[in-house]
Amino acid sequence: MDHGSMSDLRIVLLGKNITENNRVGNFILGRAAFESEAPADVELNIERHRGKLKDRDVTVINTPHLLRPNLSITQITQGVKECVNLSAPGPHVIILVLQENDFSDNNRHRVKYVLNEFSKEALKHTIVLTDEREIHNNAIHQLIQECGDEHLQFDERKSGLHSEILERVEKILKENQVQFLISDLYEEAGEETPEDGEKRRSGGSVTAEEEGDFDHEDDGKIKQRNKEKMEVAVQRKALCKFCWQES
């Protein structure tokens, strides 16, 4: 199977507002796949539905709880791992559904942390979606710049919006010459034990040392994390090459 094929697009939706995430997901799929309201007490709810975006088969992984401020490092990693597993071998594009009146610079650091958990290349594969064409929120404006100025106004009344979303997705993939995001968590996602699954579903128990203050996550920590991921990737590549030589 060619995992680089563009026949099946895999899109992850991230956002702070459950209703807005579901609205965008349903629009992309062209049907009411996601419930208009999700239980407020759910800590981490991830749903996957398939449908059509114009003439393309599309899988939408909707995770409106992944940016919640009460999630720990462990829970975020588990959530990203599940997203990667549901979009195996990895998502093509991440769409950030944001609202100007409810997004701070602290939120921007949290978003960047979560994106970095997907892949060090995630910012290059991210589209920021807002209801407004003109952005007056400095944190959103800066995040759009960090995503290569990939911003799209979401207005369901606008004709041709499905085509515009599809064109934007294809543009991102063409520019980066990468068909999908390769995550360090992909191999691990397929190796979940029954105990891991139960811990993930229950939210898990997190120690104080595991808790993270994502509101103050700085670029230095993210760069260090990227460096560690790069070292792991190099080691895996070398090991893979050795395995192929031996086979």
Score class of each variant (00 low, 15 high):
residue 190 G to W: 07
residue 173 L to N: 04
residue 105 D to G: 07
residue 87 S to G: 04
residue 12 V to W: 05
residue 177 Q to W: 01
residue 159 S to R: 05
residue 77 T to K: 12
residue 11 I to M: 10
residue 182 I to A: 13
residue 69 P to D: 15
residue 42 V to W: 14
residue 49 H to Y: 11
residue 206 V to F: 00
residue 103 F to Q: 12
residue 92 H to R: 14
residue 241 K to G: 04
residue 38 A to T: 13
residue 82 E to A: 14
residue 204 G to C: 05
residue 208 A to R: 06
residue 85 N to Y: 15
residue 172 I to K: 00
residue 176 N to M: 11
residue 182 I to W: 02
residue 36 S to Y: 04
residue 95 I to Q: 13
residue 61 I to R: 05
residue 180 F to C: 02
residue 187 E to K: 13
residue 114 V to N: 02
residue 121 E to V: 02
residue 164 E to C: 06
residue 235 Q to E: 15
residue 212 G to K: 10
residue 171 K to N: 07
residue 151 H to G: 11
residue 242 F to M: 14
residue 189 A to Q: 08
residue 95 I to N: 10
residue 172 I to Q: 03
residue 147 C to A: 10
residue 50 R to W: 00
residue 245 Q to C: 11
residue 55 D to W: 08
residue 225 R to P: 05
residue 72 S to Y: 04
residue 120 K to N: 12
residue 21 N to E: 13
residue 163 S to H: 14
residue 42 V to N: 09
residue 131 D to V: 01
residue 41 D to H: 11
residue 130 T to S: 09
residue 119 S to P: 05
residue 245 Q to W: 14
residue 21 N to Y: 02
residue 87 S to N: 08
residue 110 R to D: 08
residue 76 I to Y: 05
residue 21 N to A: 04
residue 83 C to Q: 11
residue 75 Q to W: 10
residue 132 E to I: 00
residue 151 H to E: 08
residue 147 C to D: 00
residue 225 R to Y: 15
residue 118 F to M: 10
residue 143 L to W: 09
residue 143 L to D: 07
residue 22 N to V: 00
residue 142 Q to T: 11
residue 111 V to K: 09
residue 110 R to I: 09
residue 247 S to K: 09
residue 236 R to K: 07
residue 232 V to Y: 08
residue 6 M to F: 02
residue 184 D to I: 09
residue 182 I to P: 01
residue 4 G to T: 15
residue 70 N to A: 15
residue 59 T to K: 01
residue 245 Q to S: 11
residue 145 Q to S: 05
residue 207 T to I: 04
residue 204 G to S: 03
residue 123 L to H: 10
residue 220 G to S: 12
residue 161 L to Q: 05
residue 52 K to E: 05
residue 153 Q to G: 08
residue 205 S to K: 13
residue 210 E to I: 08
residue 213 D to Q: 12
residue 15 G to L: 08
residue 91 P to W: 07
residue 46 I to V: 13
residue 134 E to D: 12
residue 240 C to R: 10
residue 52 K to I: 06
residue 60 V to Y: 02
residue 46 I to D: 12
residue 47 E to F: 03
residue 62 N to C: 14
residue 111 V to N: 06
residue 183 S to K: 03
residue 42 V to A: 15
residue 143 L to H: 04
residue 64 P to S: 15
residue 127 I to G: 05
residue 46 I to R: 06
residue 61 I to A: 06
residue 117 E to W: 05
residue 38 A to E: 04
residue 146 E to M: 11
residue 151 H to F: 10
residue 204 G to H: 01
residue 232 V to L: 15
residue 129 L to N: 09
residue 218 D to I: 04
residue 81 K to Q: 15
residue 70 N to P: 02
residue 242 F to L: 13
residue 135 I to H: 06
residue 82 E to P: 00
residue 44 L to H: 13
residue 83 C to N: 13
residue 199 K to D: 03
residue 168 R to E: 13
residue 94 I to G: 09
residue 154 F to V: 13
residue 188 E to L: 06
residue 48 R to N: 08
residue 55 D to N: 15
residue 44 L to E: 14
residue 189 A to P: 01
residue 126 T to G: 10
residue 37 E to G: 02
residue 97 V to W: 02
residue 128 V to A: 14
residue 217 E to A: 09
residue 153 Q to W: 03
residue 224 Q to H: 07
residue 213 D to N: 15
residue 119 S to N: 02
residue 178 V to Q: 12
residue 110 R to P: 03
residue 118 F to K: 05
residue 108 R to K: 15
